[in-house]
Amino acid sequence: MDTPRRVLIVAYDGAQILDIACPSGALEIANGYGARPPCTVELGTLGRRAAHSSSGIVLGAERGLETVTGRLDTLIVVGGAGCEGAAADARLLEQVRRLARHSRRVASVCTGAYVLAAAGLLDHRRATTHWGWGERLAEHHPDVAVDVRPLYIRDGNVYTSAGVTSALDLTLSLIEDDHGPTLARTVARELVAPLHRSADQAQISTSLAAPPPEDGLVRDLVGHIAGHLAEDLGPAALAARAGVSPRHLTRLFRAHLGTTPARAVRVARTEAAARLVRSSGLSLAAIARRCGFGSAETLRQAFLDHYGVTGDRLRRMPDMPPARPAPAQQTPGA
């Protein structure tokens, strides 16, 4: 049996309840769709005291932070109106530092970055937080390279995310890191969320922008492509799923997406692979398998065609490069 991944969410009085619900809810759904190994998610506070959230809802803690021992997979510190008080609590900071030393990765949601910074865990790292709090964080912690533009930032094994619902984007990224893009997309659809946004990339691939709502067939295929990147997505397979001929499928894609089925699939795979290259330590060969490419060399060529850079270069760049314009489509007889 797989050993569960232990996830501990750290709360305190004045915590934002959405900062807790977004990661815990997404991980619960991932478990339900077969995440292996699954996660166990616990809420921890100092002394196992109930946390009075900023909305007035009182949350019962499952663990006292002082009693948590052993390895953790992920330590998540949430934000909220009480973040500055939490960042000034020496006992809380001591426990956060101790637990971080025994965690595979550490993350903050929104102004939870204040707690990580006060604990010294963001020193000499690039980090983000809610856009309205970034200047104050930078003033109080000059050793932190604060950047409020991205939705989330990974620096080594430390992740920070922007305001509130960006916690969902971060969690979907962690699910993708651990289990692949198919499960991450499945969780996003279950949450009725947009196909999840990467830290430094447009929310939805331009080649797979949502078609008109009345065209249910194309809409279904777009979702199927996004959630099944490692499967057979050739024109014949997609046409069979839609119950149309490959020729008619091509006409539909040209009319509603401005591209061919084959190119739409290649772009979706390439952009998913780019997110993994920039947010994970997986090899190009492993990423190629997860995203439906036959080999690392095929993926390398896809990156060159789409971004003009190799995977290694993409991983080292500070920002995601823009996609190259799609080649002009030839008209019949041209």
Rank of each mutant, 00 (worst) to 15 (best):
M1T: 09
D13T: 09
G14I: 03
A15S: 15
C22M: 15
A26L: 03
L27Q: 10
A30P: 02
A30N: 03
G32Q: 14
G34H: 11
E42Q: 12
G47Y: 09
A50F: 14
S53H: 03
S54G: 04
V58A: 15
L65H: 12
T74C: 06
L75S: 03
V77H: 05
G79M: 02
A86G: 07
R91F: 04
V109W: 02
L121G: 05
W131Q: 10
G134N: 07
E135H: 13
E139C: 08
H140D: 14
H141F: 15
P142G: 04
R149H: 12
L151D: 11
D155E: 04
T160I: 09
A167D: 05
L170W: 07
T171A: 06
H179W: 10
E190F: 13
A199F: 02
I204G: 00
S205F: 07
P211I: 06
D215N: 12
R219K: 08
R219E: 11
L221D: 02
A239Y: 09
A239T: 02
A240Y: 01
A240R: 13
R241C: 08
A242L: 07
A242M: 04
P246I: 06
H248G: 00
H256Q: 13
G258N: 05
A264T: 07
R266D: 08
A268K: 06
A273M: 03
S280G: 09
G281A: 14
G281F: 05
L282A: 12
L282M: 10
A285K: 12
A286D: 13
I287G: 10
R289A: 15
A296G: 11
Y307P: 11
D312R: 15
M317P: 03
P318K: 10
M320P: 00
A323L: 13
A323S: 12
P325N: 10
T331D: 13
P332F: 09
A334I: 04
